[in-house]
C-alpha cells in the first residue's frame, strides 16, 4: 500500500477533494467513495464500456484510469446528463426505442452516445455503429440502441433549429 494522494475531482458540477492511493482506479473512487453508482464495472480491461464516463469532454473507460490521472478533471457521469424532470434526449430515446433491457450497459452507452453526438451531431447509421463499438451490450443486439441514438440526434438537432 502506498501513501495516499490528495486529488480533486469535479463530478457532475460538484467539487470533491479526497484521498486515494496512486493505484486506485477512477471507477472505484466514483462508485465507492462518491456513491456514484451509475457507471458499472463489467470487465476491468477496457473492453465492455460499462464504466464509460466523460472526462474533460472525452469518453473514457474509468476502469482503466487511475483516480490520480483525473486530478482536477471535469467529469460527467450518467447522473450528470439529465434530471428526472429534464431528461437528456438520449435518456428519452433509449426508453422510447427500447434500447435497453437489463440496464447494466445503459449508463455507459448513453454517456458514450452523448459525447458522440457532441462530436458528430448528425451521424449516419454507420457512424453511430462505429462510434458506439467500444460499448458492449449482451441483451439488445444493438439495433434499437442505434435507432435510439439516431432518434436523439434528430431530436437535438430539431430543438437546436427551433431555438435559432
Amino acid at each position: 500500500m502506498s501513501k495516499k494522494m490528495q486529488i480533486t475531482l469535479n463530478v457532475n458540477g460538484t467539487r470533491h477533494e479526497l484521498l486515494a492511493e496512486p493505484r486506485t482506479l477512477l471507477i472505484h473512487v466514483l462508485r465507492e467513495n462518491l456513491g456514484i453508482t451509475g457507471p458499472h464495472i463489467g470487465c476491468e480491461t477496457s473492453h465492455c464500456g460499462a464504466c464509460t464516463i466523460l472526462m474533460n469532454e472525452r469518453s473514457i473507460k474509468s476502469c482503466t484510469v487511475f483516480a490520480a490521472q483525473a486530478d482536477g478533471a471535469e467529469i460527467t457521469t450518467i447522473e450528470g446528463l439529465g434530471t428526472p424532470d429534464s431528461l437528456h434526449p438520449l435518456q428519452e430515446a433509449f426508453r422510447e426505442h427500447h434500447g435497453l433491457q437489463c440496464g447494466f450497459c445503459t449508463p455507459g452507452m448513453i454517456t458514450r452516445a452523448a459525447q458522440l453526438l457532441k462530436e458528430n451531431p448528425d451521424p449516419t447509421e454507420e457512424e453511430v455503429r462505429f462510434g458506439m463499438a467500444g460499448n458492449l451490450c449482451r441483451c439488445t443486439g444493438y439495433q434499437n440502441i442505434v435507432k435510439a441514438v439516431l432518434a436523439a440526434a434528430s431530436e437535438i438537432n430539431t430543438a437546436k433549429e427551433a431555438a435559432q
Binding site: G38, H40, R95, F104
Partner: peptide
C-alpha cells in the same frame, strides 16, 4: 407498452449487487 424499468436504468439509478454498500 414502454418499459417501467427504464426510468431508473437510463438515469443510472439501477440497484445492482455491486451498488450495495
Amino acid at each position: 407498452r414502454r418499459r417501467v424499468e427504464d426510468a431508473r436504468f437510463t438515469q443510472g439509478k439501477g440497484n445492482y449487487v455491486d451498488d450495495i454498500k
